[in-house]
Design a protein around this nucleic acid. Structure first.
Lengths: 210, 210
DNA sequence: GTCTATAGACCGATAGAC
DNA sequence: GTCTATCGGTCTATAGAC
């Protein structure tokens, strides 16, 4: 957190953490689909495994930091608000199956409430759903500010679009011939059209929740 | 494979395998979201871990068999064709987060081509996509057999619906307040409506692939 | 055929020296 | 802040008892 350029007790530490993170990113990037151990990362960074764990506390905390670093990189590229759900992200991801696999692995492991990545993931999805829901309603032209039930419909669309994105990455890991970006772009368009449609397909409104 | 009721060289073996599978199912069912080791399963089955592995060869092969057993149980309940993509499945799954987590874990690990579950997953998705695509076109009333580009659109809808199902389970692991079955049922209806719509949202046809 | 006992390899975590 | 050493745990492999 105190990662100022000033010199101080954490200056060297922060630099070393970054070095380790870069090593981990590289390790996962070219691990293809194979597993990555703390030792693998340590060797790339020129340390022992104990040295690496000293900086992050645990393997899982380190991996969580890797995903955060990846999100930060995406935010820098595509902008804070839209970065994480743009179809371009899927095209990028298609280049690094190792990181996609890490994401899926960790998100399953993070279901455990005590897992260091638990809060990261719950918060990530909460924010993504919210931003995406807003973006989906904003794209719709010529309507009043917040027409009651439309908010719930947009929330549903956001949940479903994010879910399809994650699930499609899973299918893509098993069958790389799938064109994730194209499939998702089309789904986004379909959902937008459905939001405009005055007569929704199901009977009532979608369930209103997180 | 040769699991006839007749007595023979494999009769006892098959029964023991089933006993171990049941133990594993139970272990994952009440593990909640925590991890399960071979030893945990072995203790439930009244064996040592080595004894368990004797019947399945490796931990990963055992876990693959667990998922197959789960699919078989679902097929018996809901019928061979529809079992694996019916919304009711999601309601069932909501009762066993451990098994959902196992599914996500394994499907990521199975991206590795050498993984014992690799073929199981690739084949599972292939069949599911095909059946679901057929079901989606069959539900549409009053059209000709196979109108060219509509086939590609149904394939796309099947990919996306399956993906959303998997991805929603991921979000649900992190936030159990999500109503998976309701969200998916609504998406299915929306996709069906989109397939009937003569003017698709995107410009061209969806990518035609697996 | 079935299972146990045992030993090895690997991994993550931790304590302590420097 | 980093390394060495070590420990507990998990999976794997094998030899042999039943």
């Amino acid at each position: 957190m105190t990662t100022r350029g000033r010199r101080g007790p954490y200056a060297k530490s922060a630099a070393k953490r970054q070095l380790i993170l870069d090593a981990a990113l590289a390790a996962y990037a070219d691990a293809g689909t194979r597993g990555v151990s703390v030792k693998d990362i340590a060797e790339r960074a020129g340390l022992t495994d104990a040295g690496v764990l000293h900086h992050f506390g645990s393997r899982e905390a380190l991996l969580t930091a890797v995903l955060e670093a990846r999100d930060a990189a995406a935010a820098e590229r595509y902008g804070e608000r839209e970065a994480l759900w743009r179809p371009e992200m899927l095209t990028d991801n298609a280049g690094t199956p190792g990181l996609v696999k890490l994401f899926v692995d960790l998100s399953a492991a993070a279901a455990e409430p005590e897992h260091p990545a638990h809060e990261y993931f719950t918060e990530r999805y909460r924010i993504l759903r919210q931003r995406l829901s807003e973006a989906l309603t904003a794209d719709r032209s010529g309507t009043e500010p917040a027409p009651a039930g439309q908010r719930a419909r947009a929330d549903w669309a956001a949940r479903v679009l994010l879910a399809a994105t994650d699930g499609l990455q899973l299918q893509w890991l098993l069958d790389p011939s799938i064109d994730m970006a194209a499939d998702i772009a089309r789904l986004r368009d379909t959902l937008l059209a459905a939001l405009d449609d005055p007569t929704p397909p199901g009977e009532g409104e979608p369930p209103a929740q997180a």
